[in-house]
């Protein structure tokens, strides 16, 4: 009985994991397939679609997405630390309210935030802000709560006795921030910024309202093509941008060393 249950459970797990990985495997396989009709295990392999990526059709959107992700992660990192700092340290009774306020954009669906920003810019006549400035604006609103929350978690986790210990040893406020606080919250901050980078880079629901024709981000470019064809070059684009994201995470981790934060669920 117990053995049967164990087998059933293992089979279910394997099936679920297969469900999770299948689409990724298929896309990777498609990116090496010479024909546009995607078949199970293509008989021939080609790198032609990857070669085709070196084209302004894909490079321009890619560069726009990177630019956006960099600006957004830096800006929301800075704003997030300021916000989390006030919430965690200010002598002020309303910090739960402030925290709720800073996190409030989270409870509004992205598509609604997108509509709000595009209607706002259009109705006050600032059409020119569509494109990069509007995208930055909307993306920051999207990522700020995550960064605030992670930075605040790191600050709340900060043992205040450490600060007292530094103080009794004669450290000034700036010294304490520089040598005690910042090093300790660094990993929380970096994971927040990495998160912001990834969300911004992959974003669709906000970007779809705010891109200018002919100047779109990479995911929007891809879905615009996808509506008409399953061109294998799109598979190559997707695989390449996944590799880019993985590279970015490794880079951030090298700089920020936040991997401890990713061990979610370890006991």
């Amino acid at each position: 009985m117990n053995r049967l249950l164990t087998y059933l459970f293992r089979t279910a797990l394997a099936a679920i994991l297969a469900f999770i990985t299948l689409p990724l495997v298929v896309v990777v396989a498609a990116s090496f397939s010479p024909t546009s009709a995607v078949t199970f295990l293509p008989s021939e392999w080609t790198l032609q679609w990857y070669a085709a990526l070196w084209d302004s059709r894909w490079l321009d959107p890619f560069l726009l997405s990177v630019e956006l992700a960099v600006i957004v992660s830096l800006a929301s990192g800075l704003l997030g630390v300021l916000g989390a700092y006030s919430v965690a340290y200010a002598k002020c009774p309303g910090h739960t309210a402030i925290m709720a306020l800073l996190l409030s954009p989270m409870s509004v669906p992205q598509i609604v935030k997108g509509v709000a920003v595009v209607l706002f810019l259009s109705s006050i006549g600032l059409y020119d802000l569509l494109g990069t400035p509007g995208l930055v604006m909307a993306h920051i609103i999207l990522t700020l709560p995550y960064v605030v929350r992670m930075a605040a978690t790191a600050m709340f986790g900060f043992d205040k006795r450490l600060d007292r210990a530094a103080r009794i040893l004669g450290a000034s406020v700036t010294q304490r921030i520089r040598y005690v606080l910042l090093p300790l919250i660094r990993s929380g901050l970096f994971s927040g910024m990495t998160f912001a980078f990834i969300i911004s880079f992959n974003n669709i629901p906000l970007s779809v309202f705010l891109v200018r024709p002919g100047q779109t981000t990479l995911p929007i470019t891809v879905i615009n093509h996808l509506e008409y064809s399953l061109d294998p070059v799109l598979a190559a684009v997707n695989v390449a941008s996944l590799l880019f994201i993985l590279g970015a995470i490794i880079l951030f981790e090298k700089i920020g060393g936040f991997s401890a934060q990713f061990h979610g669920g370890s006991k």
């Binding site: 340290y89 002598k91 739960t96 996190l103 929380g188 934060q261 990713f262």
Partner: peptide
């Protein structure tokens, strides 16, 4: 999107660094 686990802090902290 990546996922990072973090819990919302529950206990407010008294001021450590005066602001």
């Amino acid at each position: 999107m990546a996922v990072i686990i973090c819990s919302t802090p529950t206990k407010p902290l008294r001021a450590v660094v005066p602001v």
